[in-house]
């Protein structure tokens, strides 16, 4: 145990500042243009940040950071340390960036009881608070639609039903939509740089340090589940959730895409997603699709279920069900 700790320490020392030989070689390969870009980065993207403790070496490391799946364990922990330094510099806060791997033999699924959803939008609030979404400009992963009873035509839905009238209103039903974590995700296909992919537990994630911000994925998504950082996100310091995951709720930057990840920072530790916990009506059921005794499997096998836009063959892992 002690030895392991020592090893970890060694790795940490070796990787600080995280600029390994591999990245160095690549740096040479990319050459002059890159150095120009770093200067540009300092002038441009660095401007809104406070780079006092986040030195030139860190910025260099950030620029040349490799794709998440291409990095070794040590490289990732180096990168995570650098990112934590950046958050410290930017927010003056110790944000912990985790890297919990998926559980083996687990594929997450979600079911939502449309009879129980009353349109309180508590899930939206829970999600924003948990996932460090920008408050200004506002980013929300979940959209609750208000529909007339008797029609599921989304085009007739109200996205902005007002917060001064009590819900549920007579004759209305409510349909929350978030990322459906498709098993055949069109967004992953669309990404030109593989910045988004499906994890072994079925969750579609984004490497925010690799995304180039082309928004191809947002066009491809049939559920309008992806959100873009049109400017530097703003979160009040006291509202930042310091328990984060590299592929999920760590604070994002300007110009990258983000999305719901079924709260892998929680669910990969066995906890339930924030929207599930925030729901006051118990409309949400979450669990392991591969476990035949799980609650989600009970719902899928015994209830009348449907998925949105099933005809597109995206195989969402998000179901709607009725009592």
């Amino acid at each position: 145990m002690k030895k392991q700790k020592e090893n970890q320490l060694k790795i940490k020392i070796k990787n600080r500042p995280d600029f390994s030989r591999r990245t160095a070689l690549k740096a040479l390969g990319t050459g002059v243009a890159a150095v120009g870009a770093v200067t540009a980065g300092r002038a441009g993207f660095g401007k809104t940040e406070v780079p006092a403790e986040y030195g030139l070496m860190d910025q260099f490391g950030e620029f040349f950071q490799q794709h998440y799946k291409k990095m070794s364990k040590e490289e990732i922990s180096g990168v995570i340390e650098r990112i934590e330094r950046k958050y410290k510099a930017k927010y003056d806060l110790d944000v912990k960036v985790g890297d919990t791997p998926p559980f083996p033999g687990v594929v997450f699924g979600y079911a939502l009881n449309i009879n129980k959803c009353k349109g309180y939008r508590e899930c939206v609030r829970g999600c924003v608070e948990e996932n460090n979404q920008s408050r200004d400009p506002q980013i929300q992963y979940i959209r609750v639609l208000e529909l007339d009873r008797g029609s599921l035509n989304l085009e007739k839905s109200e996205h902005y039903y007002d917060d001064q009238t009590d819900v549920p209103k007579d004759g209305k039903m409510y349909l929350p939509i978030q990322c459906h974590q498709c098993d055949n995700p069109p967004c992953v296909k669309a990404c030109p740089v593989e910045a988004t992919w499906k994890e072994p537990d079925g969750v579609v994630v984004v490497d925010y340090n690799w995304c180039i911000g082309c928004r191809m994925c947002a066009n491809a998504c049939p559920y309008w589940a992806r959100r873009f950082n049109w400017s530097e996100p703003v979160i009040p310091k006291d509202e930042i959730n310091p328990e984060t995951h590299y592929l999920s709720n760590r604070p994002r930057e300007k110009g990258v895409m983000e999305k719901c990840t079924f709260c892998i920072q929680r669910t990969r530790k066995g906890e339930l997603p924030a929207c599930h916990q925030a729901c006051p009506t118990g409309a949400r059921v979450f669990g392991n699709l591969l476990d035949v005794n799980s609650e989600i499997r009970y719902v899928l096998e015994n209830k009348d279920i449907f998925r949105l836009k099933e005809e597109l063959n995206t195989e969402p892992k998000f179901w709607y069900y009725t009592d």
């Binding site: 939206v124 609030r125 008797g150 007739k156 902005y160």
Partner: peptide, 28 residues
Amino acid sequence: KIKSRRPVATPQVRKGLKPMKRIVHEKH
């Protein structure tokens, strides 16, 4: 019976853009 109540704040459109005027859908 669970009482009805106010929902959490209405979502905003992207900062800097004006929301569309409310659509009055023909009742289904």
